[in-house]
Write a protein that binds this DNA or RNA. Structure first.
Lengths: 142, 142
DNA sequence: GCAAAATAGTTGCTATAGCAACAAAATATG
DNA sequence: CATATTTTGTTGCTATAGCAACTATTTTGC
């Protein structure tokens, strides 16, 4: 067999992403927030009242997933959805008071996670890494 | 809000992994193979007769997922499971003839995918990238 | 201004992904 | 060698992840 499985950069990236998700999942479990739900919370902390489509675009995800994650967050009482008065197709997503309180939890966890992950890696290396990742995503678009 | 969402390297890696998976999924769809099922096929092409636990270790995944993916591959007729004669707890996973024929499909697709992804990126950059990804995974272990 | 096309969201489907609890078998330990 | 522990695989649960088809709106084009 001429190929070497572990040489594929995609495999390396996939395994890294899995490890990241698992780590964050464990950190957030005590607060009843799943990793992707957490990303939505963080987006809303920066920009409350986004529509589901806007959330989907910012997370590069299918709107179907967003709808289900947002529904779960609503069940948990962290967010509230209300129809856009100017466009009744759209649902605007707002943090509840309970959701806003998560700020004190999720941002420190995200910062600490990022700090742990990037230990021993220079800012320049991180910048190069982001450029390469962007380039690879671009390569798939064309 | 002091954090900047897109600055997290984990987000960049996650989005890249999603893009990769989606691309491969589309390439493989015509052959009735899902992306992760494809990884199992490729591992078996290199090393037929691995047990489910061995597959799980090589893919850094929970054995639960492997069991279900292998079950699906068996339903599709690509693999066959038989108990290990020396250890009746273990199931050894073998490619069927139909599974072996996939070699002509999945390896070219993997090579072509890798070629497209790494366009405009030097071997040295790829090597540095792998080192950084490994370092980040290691950072989470300690 | 009305039909056609586009957009936002939902439902149903399949495929990952991991944890807890379990059964069956193998290994370790006294 | 009998019991305790470990190992392999399964089942049930929850949470992503995306596609196709659908409804309800809004926008476009004529």
């Amino acid at each position: 067999m001429s190929f070497s499985f572990d040489d594929y950069i995609s495999i390396s990236i996939h395994k890294t992403d899995l490890a990241f998700t698992q780590y964050v999942k464990n950190k957030l479990a005590a607060f009843n927030i799943a990793p992707e739900q957490n990303l939505i919370i963080m987006l809303l902390l920066k920009n409350d009242g986004l529509t589901q489509i806007e959330l989907a675009e910012k997370l590069n995800k299918d709107k179907t997933n967003i709808a289900r994650m947002v529904y779960n967050l609503e069940q948990k009482g962290f967010i509230k959805r209300s129809p856009d008065v100017n466009d009744r197709r759209s649902l605007k997503v707002f943090l509840t008071d309970k959701g806003k309180e998560l700020s004190n939890i999720v941002i420190p966890i995200a910062e600490e996670f990022n700090h742990v992950v990037t230990k021993g890696i220079t800012d320049e290396e991180l910048e190069n890494l982001k450029v390469l990742l962007n380039k690879m995503r671009e390569n798939l678009r064309s």
